[in-house]
Each structure stands twice: as C-alpha cells, then as structure tokens.
C-alpha cells in the first residue's frame, strides 16, 4: 500500500524527487525530537542554561555564563552528538544495504577497533598528537588492510566482513598491549576513549564531522536511487543500468568515511550504526536504504544517550558508549532472535 502514496516533487525538467507523505511526517517528528532533546541537553542540570537565555541567544543578548556553557561545554558536545549520530546512522544504512547483511556495520569491520588502536599508539608519543588524528589514522590503516586482505577491494561483501573480523582482532590486540604497557592515568583516559565518550568536545570536532557529512552529501544523493535498485540483486541492477559493482564500492567508501570521521570525533560509540537502519525501517515500513530516516534516528539515539549520561544520577559521568553498547546489545539480541525465527518459520 505504501507505494500508492508516493508523490513526486519536481523542479523544472532536471530535478524530480519521489517521496512519501508518511516519510515527510516522520522526518518532521524526528527533527522536532532532536530539537526538543537538544534544548533539554542545554537547559537541564547544574550548569544548565536558562530558557530565557536560550531565547536571548537568538536575540544576541545573553549572560556570560550562558554563553560560556553554550560555546564551550554543552553546545559543541550537542552538535557532535547530533552530527556523529547522523553519520553513524548513514554509515550503517549504506553498509547494510550493499552487503545485504542486516547485522553488519562498519564497527564490525575493524574500523572502530582500528581507530582505537590508532589512539592507543598515538598516546605512546610524549608530544601528544590530537586524538582524532590517531583515530583517523588507525581507522584508515584498518580499512586499507581490509581492502588488501580481500584481494578484490570492497566488491565482495562476505570477504569484506571476514577480513574485517581479522583486522579487528589484530587492532584489539595492539590496543590491549598499549593499555597494559602504559601508565595508569593515561590508560584510564584511553579506556574512556575506547568505549566512546562525548566529554570535552569543542567546535573543531563538530566542524570535522560536519565537513564529512557535507562531502558525503552529493555522493549520497547520486547513490540513493541506485541503492534501491541493488535490492533486486546484482544482475538485475546491472541490466537496468545501475552499475552494481561501482555502486557497492562507492557506498562502502562513503560508509567507511562517515564512520571513520564519526569515530574520530566521538570515539567508537557502539551499535548506533547497526541499530539506526533497523529502527528506520521499522518506522518507515518501506524498502530501500532509508538514508534520511537512518541519519535522523542515529542523531536522536546519540543525543538521547548522551543526555542520559549527563543528567541521570545513576549514569553520572559514564562514557556514552557504555549506554549505547548496553541498549545496542539488547537490540542485537532481539534482531538475532527475529532472524532466527524467520529462518525457522
């Protein structure tokens, strides 16, 4: 029934976009949810900015405390949560669509573990390179190793996953070695990074992930209809002019780039990439990569998780990655159970 409500939005001869009213309503709700959660993040708790100050911010006049909290403490953290969440969501949606593996996401692929190893290795240098650089380098090396190990780049999904598991194991070994070998306070700082934390983010982090999303945007616009075609199988997609192999390669490249940047600024926050596309599909109840919905869901999940570690007394000060890992683990169990039931129905 869903296809029946498909509408066309056209601008002149060159632009025509298909959409469903249901999706637009859903996107509006999710965006509103991000806005509400964002305001709560800024307002709540001890250092919260007053509602009056929030309104005043748009007028230009606000108290110095409020400005400081907004510009240095909660503002950047919130931005990073929204943008990194969206990047994780997109990354997972792209990856799951082209690998046809509902339980796959770039974190599984050795990327997160590689980033962790990168940060660990960087922490060994006394001069102290910035963490995001270590993470990016580590993720890059891990991806490179995966691409070499498959012998065919990213064209064969099953090889990518197998090579990814091997690379992840190696990276984890390196990380463990560094953690055991380094000093205690360094190790505990490292441990916080390794589960993913949004503590002490600045506008530089937000800028980095924003840049990644802007770079990915044109690619995603071109890839989106082709990804929909990929669902028909490679042969049919190719015969329809969809260039299945090229599409898969570019989708994986975009997915890895987004995940690597998100991991670089937010740490290897678990399960957002895996969960968002599933949640998106449940909400839209429609086929296709569901890119926009996945991005919005990813942002909602990460903002919500970060808000809870900031404000819930029980979770006080925990890295946000622990929360997402906890809920993600439960969700993964549910998915496995569902796949299992499907297989035996």
């Amino acid at each position: 029934m869903t296809q029946q409500q498909t509408k066309v939005f056209t601008i002149g001869e060159t632009i025509a976009v298909l959409y469903q009213r249901r999706h637009v309503v859903l996107w509006t709700i999710l965006a509103a949810l991000i806005l509400v959660l964002g305001i709560v993040t800024l307002v709540a708790g001890k250092l919260g900015i007053g509602m009056g100050d929030i309104i005043a911010l748009f007028g230009g006049e606000s108290s110095p405390t409020a400005t400081f909290v907004l510009e240095n403490l909660r503002g950047p953290r919130l931005l990073v949560a929204i943008l990194a969440g969206a990047a994780f969501g997109l990354s997972g949606a792209l990856f799951q669509t082209v690998t046809r593996n509902p339980l796959g996401s770039p974190d599984v692929l050795g990327l997160a573990a590689g980033a962790g190893a990168g940060v660990a290795v960087v922490s060994l240098f006394p001069t102290g390179l910035p963490t995001p650089i270590g993470a990016l380098a580590g993720a890059g090396v891990a991806i490179g190793l995966v691409a070499i190990a498959t012998g065919s780049g990213f064209t064969s999904p099953s090889r990518v996953i197998l090579a990814g598991i091997a690379v992840a194991a190696m990276a984890t070994a390196i990380t463990q070695f560094v953690v055991t070998a380094t000093l205690r306070d360094e190790a505990s700082r490292l441990a916080a990074y390794l589960v993913g934390s949004l503590n002490a983010r600045d506008l530089g982090h937000a800028g980095l992930i924003c840049l990644a999303l802007l770079i990915a945007l044109p690619l995603l616009i071109v890839l989106n209809p082709r990804l929909q075609l990929m669902e028909l199988g490679d042969e049919l997609a190719t015969s329809l002019g969809g260039k299945a192999t090229t599409t898969r390669t570019w989708a994986i490249v975009a997915s890895l780039m987004l995940a690597a940047m998100a991991v670089a600024v937010a740490g290897p926050i678990a399960f957002i990439a895996l969960m968002s596309p599933h949640a998106a599909r449940m909400l839209t109840r429609s086929t296709g990569p569901n890119l926009v919905t996945s991005a919005l869901v990813g942002a909602v999940l990460l903002v919500l998780a970060d808000l809870s570690v900031q404000q819930l007394p029980v979770l006080d000060g925990l890295p946000v990655g622990i929360i997402t890992a906890g809920f993600g683990g439960i969700f993964l169990g549910y998915l496995l159970l569902r796949e299992f039931r499907k297989g035996h129905a």
Binding site: L232, S286, T287
Partner: peptide
C-alpha cells in the same frame, strides 16, 4: 533469481 525487495508492492 532476482531478489524481491522486502515489503515491495
């Protein structure tokens, strides 16, 4: 053996 996308009409 084409694949039927999940839920497609």
């Amino acid at each position: 053996h084409p694949t039927v996308p999940e839920g497609v009409t």
